[in-house]
Design a binder for these strands. Structure first.
Lengths: 257, 257
DNA sequence: CCAAGGCCTTGACTCTGGTCAATCCGATCG
DNA sequence: CGATCGGATTGACCAGAGTCAAGGCCTTGG
């Protein structure tokens, strides 16, 4: 993990910081640093009290939880994203482990500075509240996804969601190896293989990490996509979690095969 | 659902509103109303855009999610608690359904007023951010609980948590019927019965909704309680979710039998 | 007091998904 | 080019949890 100088103009436009006053922005960036991680690098460990807020600038970060020797992948984050925001606001330890999946860059801001800024700058407070509301909403949807759908249904919804996020064309690219995708979807690699195979009759063609959906309507009948569970909005246009949650209700575009 | 006059001094000390300025407090309460619900009454429906923030004053509220004909109970809230805070901040629809389990009273504040106040009052913004951070942390713990533990382990942890919240004595009272507790714990009523029976060798004595833990140490060896998953802090002393998340790290008291 | 209904429990069975082991395949390296 | 390694797949088997059905118990109301 190496540190470099900060590109302030770019940082200024990040979802959380664009609501901050000039004074707050100066306070937050004064003690901030950019950290670079190589693939597999550990950014934050579950249970540790780093007391840092991280803003993901480049790369991909995996959140994982562990208990009693068991592990589960919880989420895969791509820029722009906030990590450990809740812990920084409360001043508590990390609830999850954060690990770089690919070469990544994050801006690290001391939690102390975040809490100071919160009480003084209503614009920043609003931005933090909105981002947290977005994260919370996303997690509620994820929890419902796991409680209400079976493995096959989760996979089918996931494929449709990814298809939308990647432009709506018939073919999509899985964002990680199948082994990891399986854990993110709450199943074993063996079961993911079988679940994928079971979707062939619904027009799912598999070629490594390239997936083609030749009958999205048939797949959608199975997946029963629901804006109260799924979010097909991409993060590619630089919006924060709050804005992505707001845009979630524009209807999905399913192009008949 | 009937409406009555508001007891302002009491409302003023609620977790979210105690951080607001006098002006903000006036803005928020001007259009607020108190709603009373009888058992089973519907407070908010999944997918609806009430655009209201609810503060639970009395009673108990159940949050449930539904998809494709399936239902799952997600959480059981007791005063003081906030409901639909994330939806109010973002101006989006309810992600879950909220239903009164017993006679309940809630303060309903228009989401519009909440969003207005957010941009103006840093104290209120901070309070909202902290409460949302608390809700988010709680949900992360719940998600890890479901992903990482099996049904028996979830039940064992739940019993220990309840024991602590109810004073730490050997006997505790389930907060709802077993049928509902089963759904909250992510299992069927039949399975809860069997799981409870399987805990008898660990000193769990069952008498209706009265449960006695005669060997908490043995039960804890099975449950492997973890402050990154469990929260044994009671809400009885009037603190909000943020403060309960902060206090979570004081060690659990396990009295040897 | 009796009857009815709901909840809980228990048992037998089913099914989804996990485990284990063998194999296949593609990438990498000597 | 062949050897090797790790991920992916496949099959057989197993375990945890859901389903269905029957029975017991308690509460409620006539």
């Amino acid at each position: 993990m190496t540190r470099t100088e900060i590109d302030l103009p770019r940082i200024r436009r990040l979802p959380l910081l664009d609501g901050a006053s000039a004074e707050t922005f100066a306070l937050l960036t004064r003690e901030a640093a950019i950290a670079h991680l190589e693939p597999g690098g550990l950014l934050a460990a579950q249970g540790e009290s780093d007391d840092q807020l991280y803003l993901l600038l480049e790369g991909a970060i995996l959140l994982e939880g562990a208990w009693n020797g068991r592990e589960a992948d919880l989420a895969l984050l791509q820029p722009p994203a906030t990590l450990m925001l809740a812990s920084a606001v409360l001043g508590g330890p990390n609830l999850v482990t954060a690990r770089a999946l690919s070469s990544s860059a994050v801006l690290a801001i001391p939690g102390q500075a975040v809490r100071q800024a919160l009480g003084r700058d209503a614009g920043f407070g609003r931005a933090v509240a909105e981002e947290l509301a977005g994260c919370f909403s996303g997690l509620v949807r994820t929890f419902k996804n796991h409680r209400l759908r079976g493995a096959q249904e989760r996979l089918a919804s996931y494929l449709l969601t990814q298809q939308q996020r990647q432009g709506g064309g018939p073919t999509l690219r899985l964002p990680c190896r199948k082994r990891r995708l399986a854990s993110l979807l709450g199943m074993t690699p063996e079961n993911l293989s079988r679940a994928l195979a079971s979707l062939v009759p619904y027009g799912v063609e598999i070629d490594g990490v390239q997936i083609t959906l030749s009958e999205p309507l048939a797949l959608a009948r199975l997946a029963a996509p629901d804006p109260l569970i799924d979010n097909h909005v991409s993060s590619a246009d630089g919006t924060g979690q709050a804005e992505r949650e707001r845009r979630r209700f524009v209807r999905m575009q399913l192009n008949p095969a």
